[in-house]
Amino acid sequence: MSEVARSISLTVNGTIIRVAPGTTIAAAVLLAGEATRASVGGEPRGPLCGMGICFECRVTIDGVPHQRSCQMLCIPGIRVTTREVTEDSGGPATP
């Protein structure tokens, strides 16, 4: 894909990535050299099925966790974070 065609820029874990229109967010994450999610046991995971079935491609987009990146196209300016530990800042569970 030529550089000229990479007209959409977004950030993946803070790094600016430029992609062509029609690129899925999952592909952009791989392009950035990142895994998509951390498994419940902490392993890095990447997309498996590419069609919205397996949920391995879940990432956080503009602060919203658990988004299926393989079925969503990149749009300019979005912020993608991966391997998100969706930890709340709220402190311990017990009083």
């Binding site: 419940v40 966790p65 658990h66 530990v85 969706t86 930890e87 709340d88 800042s89 709220g90 402190g91 311990p92 569970a93 017990t94 009083p95």
Partner: peptide
């Protein structure tokens, strides 16, 4: 739901 640690605590 999916995992949202700390969303509620009690």
């Amino acid at each position: 739901t999916d995992r949202y640690p700390g969303f509620v605590r009690h």
